[in-house]
C-alpha cells in the first residue's frame, strides 16, 4: 500500500512539466526515504534525478519499496487536471497495475480522482559518485534561463568558463558570436537575486544548448539554480525544491577528440 499526500500539489505539477519533454517513460521509486526518480533521455546524454523526501509529505505511507513505471506525458496530462492550489494524493495498492491521483481543492469542495495505468519500464540505475566540483555557480534561475534562450538563438553549443572574473557563457554560429559574463554579485536586496561563483580551479566545458533549454523548464521550481562544473565530468544543474528535495539534471560534455 502506497499513500502519499502532498499539500503543495503544484510542486508535482511543476516537476512533471520540467521533465516530461526530456524523458518519455520512467520508474518512480518509492521508499522510506522518499519519492524519487532517475532517468536518462533517449540518447543517454542527459540524466534526471528527482528526490521528494518523505518528510515533505503531509502523509507518507510506503509499506515496501516499490517502483512504478509511468509514461511522463500521460502523468503530466493527469496532473494538469489538478488546480495549482490542490492537495495531491498518490495511491497504489500492492500488486496493482494502476496508480490513482486524487486532487482536493483547498476548501475541500471538489475532490477528483484520476487512475492511470502503470507500465513496465526498462531502466538502468546509474551510480552517481560524490564529486568535488571545480566550480559551483549559484544564480537566479530566471537569469540562467534567459541566457540559455538568448544563446540558443545564435549557436548550438555553449562554452561555460569559470574564472576569478566570474562565469562566462559563450556561443558561436553562422550569424556571429555571443558572450555573457556574470560576475559574482552579493550586494542585492534579496538573497535569491545573488550570483555566487565558488571556484576551486578554473574550468571550461562545452555543452549542447538544447539540453540546457530543456533543463530550464525547472525554473518555476526554484528562484535559484546551482550549476556545478568539473573538467571532463557531466555538469549538474540543480533546482532545489523547497523543504522537500531537488531536481537535478546531469549533462555529459562535448569533448575534443
Amino acid at each position: 500500500m502506497l499513500e502519499l499526500r502532498l499539500v503543495q500539489g503544484s510542486l508535482l505539477k511543476k516537476v512533471l512539466e520540467a521533465i516530461k519533454d526530456l524523458v518519455t517513460d520512467a520508474n518512480f521509486d518509492c521508499s522510506a526515504t522518499g519519492f524519487s526518480l532517475q532517468a536518462m533521455d533517449s540518447s543517454h546524454v542527459a540524466l534526471v534525478s528527482l528526490l521528494l523526501r518523505s518528510e515533505g509529505f503531509e502523509h507518507y505511507r510506503c509499506d515496501r519499496n516499490i517502483s512504478m513505471g509511468m509514461n511522463l506525458n500521460n502523468m503530466a496530462k493527469m496532473l494538469k487536471c489538478a488546480g495549482n492550489d490542490d492537495i495531491i494524493t498518490l495511491k497504489a495498492d500492492d500488486g496493482s497495475d494502476t496508480v490513482t491521483f486524487m486532487f482536493e481543492s483547498p476548501t475541500q469542495d471538489k475532490i477528483s480522482d484520476f487512475e492511470m495505468k502503470l507500465m513496465d519500464v526498462d531502466s538502468e540505475h546509474l551510480g552517481i559518485p560524490e564529486a568535488e566540483y571545480h566550480a559551483i555557480v549559484r544564480m537566479p534561475s530566471t537569469e540562467f534561463a534567459r541566457i540559455c534562450k538568448d544563446l540558443s538563438s545564435i549557436g548550438d553549443t555553449v562554452v561555460i568558463s569559470v574564472t576569478k572574473e566570474g562565469v562566462k557563457f559563450s556561443t558561436s554560429g553562422d550569424i556571429g558570436t555571443a558572450n555573457v559574463v556574470c560576475r559574482q554579485n552579493t550586494t542585492v536586496d534579496k538573497p535569491e537575486d545573488a550570483t555566487i561563483v565558488e571556484m576551486n580551479e578554473p574550468v571550461s566545458l562545452t555543452f549542447a544548448l538544447r539540453y540546457f533549454n530543456s533543463f530550464t523548464k525547472g525554473t518555476p521550481l526554484s528562484n535559484t539554480v546551482t550549476i556545478s562544473l568539473s573538467s571532463e565530468l557531466p555538469v549538474v544543474v540543480e533546482y532545489k525544491i523547497a523543504e522537500m528535495g531537488h531536481l537535478r539534471f546531469y549533462l555529459a560534455p562535448k569533448i575534443e577528440e
Binding site: H44, A46, L126, G127, T206, A208, A252, I255, E256
Partner: peptide, 14 residues
C-alpha cells in the same frame, strides 16, 4: 571537433 559524450561514459550502472 567536439564529440558529444554519453552519461554512461561517466557514471557506471549500479
Amino acid at each position: 571537433v567536439n564529440q558529444q559524450r554519453q552519461i554512461t561514459t561517466f557514471f557506471a550502472k549500479k
